[in-house]
Design a protein around this nucleic acid. Sequence first.
DNA 1: CTATTGTGTCTGGGATACCAGACTGAAGGA
DNA 2: TCCTTCAGTCTGGTATCCCAGACACAATAG
Lengths: 252, 252
Amino acid sequence: MGKVPAASHTLAILRTLASRGACSASTLAADLQLPRSTVYHLLATLRETGFVVHRESERRWSLGPSAVDVGLAALRQDPRDIVVRPHLIRLAEQVNETVHLGVLQGAEVLYLMKESRPGISAAPTLITAVGVRLPATTTASGRAILARLPFEQVRALTATPTAFVSRTERGPRSLSQLRSVLDRERRQGYSVEIGEIMLDHASIAAPILDVRQQPTAAVSVTVRCSEADFADRVDDLSAAVIATAERINAAR
Amino acid sequence: MGKVPAASHTLAILRTLASRGACSASTLAADLQLPRSTVYHLLATLRETGFVVHRESERRWSLGPSAVDVGLAALRQDPRDIVVRPHLIRLAEQVNETVHLGVLQGAEVLYLMKESRPGISAAPTLITAVGVRLPATTTASGRAILARLPFEQVRALTATPTAFVSRTERGPRSLSQLRSVLDRERRQGYSVEIGEIMLDHASIAAPILDVRQQPTAAVSVTVRCSEADFADRVDDLSAAVIATAERINAAR
DNA sequence: CTATTGTGTCTGGGATACCAGACTGAAGGA
DNA sequence: TCCTTCAGTCTGGTATCCCAGACACAATAG
């Protein structure tokens, strides 16, 4: 524990609001096990600085514009943004589709980057906007990372009620099914998701590894097409995604 | 001033790192007028919680992954994201180009949202990625917002050495030139930027106003084409952008 | 190689921030 | 309408955090 509890608590409030969304001061006090008056003092400071906004009509507190500013600055200043993004842009141009960079967070994948040069696609693109998180077990990006983790770690990460929930009722439904899928995808070097996140959409992803060969992120391409049409494109798309991930690994 | 200086100082460190990028602890202490030991204590807490990362080889401190997480969560949880983004998606589909939402920050515009369905475009899209900030005076988005502000406020915002710096040597070079441009753009209801941010690219933007008719953001469309070709598209694009801004205003 | 500057850590005392709990007012339920 | 619950504010005493400054080590400049 650092020597500045007020600092720790302030940051804990930010993280709690990030993970659970807008909530009351009493909920924050309960979650963080702090006196309500302490939480109100910290919220007052957070509000003054714009990190938190008080929604008076709802009697709830939420993250504010300063949090957005700092977070986007952090994203822009991340050395990966400088190294990785040009590769994503090049891949998007090459395959003429939407490309993402995702990172694992617990049992979810968080999309940090997104570059598009899609062909004709009528589907809303909201679902993989920067900042969105989706279950790792049902996304190509998530599985590309999970496939390179020790299985004990995968088991621990997915030991939650929501790990196998899927909005399209597709994808692995149990740990043993997941293990089979991850084994196959690790051997082939890329992960594929067809219709698990969005019907009529498919994704291919390859992991990005650090110097110790640990997966840190995944590059993915998403296309809108039927399963039959997608079969024709798998070889080209997977080759392009793997090549891009390898170039990123080499650029370290 | 809040009653929790440690909280204020912690947040001030985050903002300073956001605005000036990675720097030494002594620089932070000087900027914030805090004792170095206090700054080190706060940095220790920020590092423990992942909000800050110590780049030991550079002996500098920078924003860390927790700052990215909280910022992206703040962006996603922003009620505007829920209200505004579907309109941007629809506009992108309609005009088949890249669409942004930008907000004013000082003399710069910050891109909060970006949706793409571009036609063929070989230019890198990095320059208007989410989180990027550009001078307000040379971007359509920035000028769309400035055009709706009292000119005294515009004068105050641009009273900096960098307000009229442009990487393409185009755009207004003085306050009086800016005033003329803003007057014209306010009358026509949209702002246009041709080749000021990127050569061979043009943007059209319309402001989004709050209930007091104050500009809070701007919607813009960016296309890649020559100045001659762009002239043919101005009417259609500006009508679409203005209509989208009006729909967003009506959705409040 | 030496001197200077800057980074990072440590200490103890005094100023102050945190906590428990009371109070007021608003919202919700019966 | 009344009662209960919750939000938000306030107070004062004690535990503790912040600051000045010293020290060791690393990096830079001459």
